[in-house]
Design a protein around this nucleic acid. Structure first.
Lengths: 220, 220
DNA sequence: GAAGATAGTAATTGATTACTATCTTAGTAT
DNA sequence: ATACTAAGATAGTAATCAATTACTATCTTC
C-alpha cells in the first residue's frame, strides 16, 4: 500500500437521503471555505496528507470543483498564508494596544502567540512543514517573511526595554529574540508530543518567568 | 503536475559505458548503505520527497532491489531511527564523561547536541517531520521516546544542580527542561530559516548564557 | 566443480496524485 | 418567461508512488 496516511471525513454526509443543502456559493465565499477546510484538516492531519480530494469532501464538493476557485493547489496554500499573515498580525497588534511597558509588551505578545496557537492548532504544523522544505518555494518565502517580521517585533521590544533600563543593559538582543522564539517552539513541540493542546497555556505561564530572568528583567 | 519535489541524483553514474563497479554487497552492508543514503537525502530534501526510487539511485541500485533488504518502506525509517537513537545516545554519553558539575553537564549536553546536529543536518528535519504527524505511528513513537529520554536526562541534571545549590532552589524543573529543549529548537529553526548550518555553533554559544541566567545559576 | 543461497534487474502492479476536459444546472438580469 | 453566466458534476488524463513479480548474476560451500 503506497499511501502514508488517508483522510476520510464526513463521507456519510453526502449520502443519498440528504444530498447536502445544495448550497451554491459564490467564488469568494467558496475560497474562504476552502481555506477554512485546509485549516480544519491541518489541525488533525499532516499537511502533505491534505489532498485536493480531502479538501473537497471536507466541504461536500467534488474534487474537480475545487479547481473552479483556485488555479492550482499551491494557490490554495498561498491563500492559507494570506489568512495566516493577516490574522496573526491583527492578533498581535490587538495584544500590543494599551501596553506602555516593553516588558509587558513581550508578555502580551507571548500570550497572544500562545492563544493564537491554541485557537488554531494547525498553524505550527503548517509552518514546520514549510520550514523543513529545503527548496525556497513561494510558500516557504512567505513563512520566512512572517517569522522575520515576528522576530523584528520581538527585537524592537527588547531594545526598547533596554533603553528604558528594564533589562540587562548588556543584553544580546539577537540571542534574546532567538530564545524567545525557541521558547514558543519548545512549547509547541511539547504539545505535539503530548498531542493535547490544553497543556499549552499552563506550561506557558510557567516558562515565561524563566525567560524574563534570563534576559535580566529588573523588577519582576 | 502532481509532484511537490523531485530528486534526480547521480543518474549519469549508471550509464552504459560504466555500469558501476557492480559491487555486490552483503545484506547487512546494504542496509547500512540504505540508511546512510536516507540520511544523505534528508540533509537536502524533505523526508516525504525521499522515495524508494530516490534511495535506490542514490546508491546506484534499482528500486526493486531496495526491497530485498527491507520488507517495507517503514522498515527503512525504523532502521534510520535505530541509527539515530544509538549515535545520539553515544554522543551525549561521551560528552557527559569527565563532567562532575551538573551545570557543566548541561553545557556539555547542549554542545554535544548542537555538534550532532551540525554533523547531521538531516536529523532535525526527520524529527520535525515525524512529530508533526498526528497519527501515533510506530516511527513517531520512537521519536517521542527519544525526546522523552533526552528530556529526562536534562531534568536529572537540573535536579542534581539544585541539590548542589548551583541553581535557584525554587527552580521549576519541568519548565526549565522545556526551555532547554526550546532553546535547541529555536536554534535549529533559525538554521532552517537561514539555510546555513554554519551559523548554528556561534549563535549557540551566545544563547547558553541567557538560559543559565534564566535558571538562576549561582556562579557564572 | 556442481548445488544451493542470495543480491540484483527489468517490468509491471494497483492505488493515488494534481489537474482538466465536457456537460449540467442553479442563480440572475433582462 | 428566456437567455446568459458561472458553480458544480462527471469522467477522464498522465504521472508517480510503494510493492511484487519472474528472472539473472554472483557468491559460498561442500
Amino acid at each position: 500500500m503506497p499511501m502514508p496516511t488517508k483522510i476520510v471525513i464526513n463521507y456519510y454526509l453526502q449520502g443519498a437521503t440528504m444530498p447536502m443543502p445544495k448550497t451554491r456559493l459564490s467564488a469568494p465565499a467558496r475560497q474562504l471555505e476552502i481555506v477554512a477546510a485546509v485549516l480544519a484538516l491541518a489541525a488533525e492531519h499532516s499537511p502533505d496528507a491534505i489532498t485536493t480530494q480531502a479538501i473537497a469532501q471536507q466541504i461536500g464538493l467534488t474534487q474537480g470543483a475545487v479547481f473552479r476557485h483556485f488555479p492550482t493547489k499551491e494557490a490554495i496554500w498561498l491563500a492559507v498564508m494570506d489568512w495566516l499573515e493577516e490574522s496573526l498580525q491583527s492578533a498581535i497588534a490587538a495584544a500590543l494596544t494599551e501596553v506602555r511597558d516593553p516588558i509587558a509588551g513581550l508578555q502580551a505578545m507571548f500570550n497572544a502567540h500562545i492563544g493564537f496557537i491554541t485557537a488554531h492548532p494547525a498553524v505550527p504544523r503548517l509552518i514546520f512543514h514549510e520550514l523543513q522544505k529545503p527548496a525556497a518555494g513561494a510558500i516557504k518565502q512567505r513563512v520566512c517573511g512572517l517569522l522575520e517580521r515576528y522576530r523584528q517585533r520581538v527585537t524592537a521590544l527588547l531594545i526598547a526595554a533596554k533603553a528604558q533600563g528594564q533589562v540587562d543593559p548588556a543584553l544580546d538582543d539577537s540571542a534574546a529574540a532567538t530564545l524567545f522564539l525557541g521558547m514558543v517552539q519548545g512549547l509547541v513541540m511539547q504539545t505535539l508530543l503530548a498531542g493535547d493542546p490544553h497543556t499549552l497555556q499552563p506550561t506557558a505561564s510557567r516558562l515565561l518567568p524563566l525567560y524574563l530572568r534570563g534576559i535580566g528583567v529588573r523588577q519582576p
